[in-house]
């Protein structure tokens, strides 16, 4: 579904993504874990088209989409829930969802909106509320719902549990599980490594711009050494 080969992204002279290769198959939930500054956000932003890679290749559905602009990537079937959610805070909840469905025909957009309020009942009561006043948990659901409004073939998420209270973190993982059951293809960056590995099929570990380990999620979860060396979390329960 999504194939990345020898991807390199630079900020001026800093190379933030070095020669990364990875694959996400249709229907898979794949996660990317790694310490702060590893280059995870940069990698997602490059895939989604917000940053231009210096080298490498991005393939989506057997199409070479390297260097495509974000709006084109979205139309090709790839959506990103950005780091820190980036909700349109001046907008109502409904308007945020509508923007997410901007590429859809009007009738389909309405259908998707109905699906989203079924998937996220909290949003239903708050449709006319200004999005800037949502709680962290509600805003996160809105961010994911907004991305799903384009009915993407692959959904990228950058730290969906960031800054949420523990109960709400659980909600996010429940949601990932539900999306997985419904057959969605997900590529998720997470700091909650153990929690994420429990719901993912496969995982990649990134550090200093490079992929340093990968494999089935259950297998990586059992590797204490990885957590100590690369993630700095002994036992990985943090």
């Amino acid at each position: 579904m999504l194939d990345i080969e020898s991807l390199i992204t630079r900020y001026g002279t800093i190379t933030a993504v070095r020669d990364v290769a990875l694959t996400v198959q249709a229907g898979e939930v794949v996660c990317l874990i790694g310490p702060n500054g590893a280059g995870k956000t940069t990698l997602l932003a490059t895939i989604a088209g917000l940053l231009k890679p210096s080298a490498g290749r991005v393939t989506l559905d057997n199409k070479n989409v390297t260097g495509w602009a974000p709006d084109r990537m979205l139309r090709a079937g790839l959506a990103l829930v950005p780091e820190h959610r980036r909700i349109f805070s001046d907008f109502t909840v409904r308007e945020n969802l509508l923007v997410g469905g901007v590429t859809q025909p009007a009738s389909r957009r309405q259908e998707l909106l109905d699906e989203m309020v079924t998937l996220f009942p909290v949003l239903k009561e708050r449709l006319s509320a200004q999005a800037g006043y949502l709680s962290g948990g509600e805003a996160q659901q809105l961010a994911i719902g907004r991305a799903l409004m384009s009915d993407p073939a692959v959904l990228l998420m950058d730290e969906p549990s960031l800054g949420l209270a523990p109960v709400l973190v659980e909600q996010v993982f429940d949601l990932i599980t539900r999306l997985r059951i419904s057959g969605r293809t997900l590529f998720v960056v997470e700091q909650n490594a153990q929690r994420m590995l429990a719901v993912a099929d496969r995982a990649y570990v990134m550090r200093s711009g490079e992929i340093v380990a990968d494999g089935p999620a259950a297998q990586l979860a059992a590797r204490e050494d990885l957590f100590e060396t690369y993630l700095g979390q002994s036992g990985g329960n943090a």
Binding site: P70, V99, V102
Partner: peptide
């Protein structure tokens, strides 16, 4: 409000 995020939505 947020140009990059708007582009991510397909605008």
């Amino acid at each position: 409000e947020d140009f990059d995020t708007a582009r991510l939505m397909g605008i």
